[in-house]
Design a binder for these strands. Structure first.
Lengths: 227, 227
DNA sequence: TAGATTGTTAATCGATTAACAATC
DNA sequence: TAGATTGTTAATCGATTAACAATC
């Protein structure tokens, strides 16, 4: 509803690292991990950029926000740069995560190996349907929404993942925030309103398909020039 | 192949809608659908922007790329604007989709209601594991990778969704492209290389969490400027 | 008409990119 | 030193935003 937050320039802002760069650091991290597993010790910006799917100028610019971790004429030490990026993102810490809404998507997320391997630990599954409470999923048991406050506090959870239907999402977000969660990853098709200081990121599966459909449609238009 | 497209003058002719605008059209569409269901007939840019989670200047700028569909002093007709945006995206057509990789995520995607309701029809589930072929999921049966070519051609599929492990993704992408698919939505943690003219969009679940972790970490840094 | 609100302009902001001096 | 490659500059490109003339 009303955005009561102060103007953007008065809110905490990362010193120096642009948002677009932050969003690419995980790509570099993954590429470095893969390259490291091949035994490569040193990598040039050209090689690393190719592995990450960006161009080398952008990569060097991005890395320059973190510091000078390369050696001119040589390149970057794979393991050292990997460590520096992981530290910058915060992956040397362990992050406790709760997933709310254990439908197909919630179950898929709870089984997703890419989370645990990067320091994210799913410590609780919660569902608003009392009939689902008690269900075993892997080594977790679905818990009740009424226990959310205790769950967040006991596990020091700062990240909540919402995988509910759209109309339940705002209520769940409110509950998460009041329990103390300060970062939310939202898979529900809904616009969330949260207090200042709470970060929300949204993943909308159908929006991605719609963007593809737009471009697909344009490919089919005759007489269009595509770049 | 019959050309079932509407006459040229009914199709979008906008030469270049900025990518950032294209990515927001689905948000406006969803907001308009929700507002329409409340019985609202007319909406101002201010109201619609709030419902979609953007500011009104951006909304009006975005809509101006589509044409002049509003009335000064009045606002936008909800149903008319909804139709125009759906047409612009291409949602008045029916898009056949194949999902490859029927693990937890692939199953979640195949059950996701947000696809069908927007004109995306999942016509086939494919898995590279022969032991999975024949499994029933809803009204679909898992098919074999060796049938992919036939499946794509028989169903006129232009969009493929990759939900395999990362190391299988490039091979699947190659198969999709050679079968004739020209748009790919990739959920696998891998950088895909495709020929020019093929659109790839990537959804990386762990990257979203990593971006949240970065900001979460910064909230916890002492001595940060948080005026 | 008077009030409301769009559509557009222009300024600003942020991201990308090529080029190359610095330097290993 | 000679070759290689980073880190940085500066130009360009694209997106955002406030403001307001146009106009219903």
């Amino acid at each position: 509803m009303n955005d009561l937050r102060p103007p953007a320039e008065d809110r905490p802002v990362a010193p120096g690292i642009p948002e677009a760069t932050v969003a690419r650091l995980p790509l570099y991290l993954r590429a470095l991990t893969a390259l490291g597993e091949t035994g490569l010790r040193t990598v040039s910006s050209e090689q690393l950029a190719t592995a990450a799917g960006v161009n080398s100028a952008k990569l060097r610019k991005d890395l320059s926000y973190l510091g000078s971790y390369g050696t001119r004429g040589v390149g970057y030490d794979v393991e050292y740069l990997r460590y520096q990026i992981a530290r910058e993102i915060g992956l040397n810490e362990d992050w406790a995560v709760v997933i709310i809404g254990i439908g197909n998507l919630g179950q898929a997320l709870s089984n997703y190996g890419g989370f645990r391997s990067r320091g994210f630990r799913i410590v609780s599954l919660v569902d608003g349907d009392p009939a689902r409470v008690g269900e075993q999923h892997g080594d977790l048991v679905i818990e009740s929404m009424s226990d959310l406050d205790r769950i967040v506090k006991e596990n020091d959870i700062s990240i909540g993942v919402i995988a509910t239907p759209g109309d339940a999402a705002q209520g769940v977000a409110d509950r998460l925030v009041s329990a103390g969660v300060t970062s939310i990853l939202n898979f529900a098709p809904a616009v969330l309103t949260v207090p200042s200081g709470i970060d929300v990121r949204k993943v909308d599966l159908s929006i991605e398909l719609q963007i593809l459909a737009y471009h697909e449609q344009r490919k089919r238009l005759p007489g269009e020039v595509r770049s």
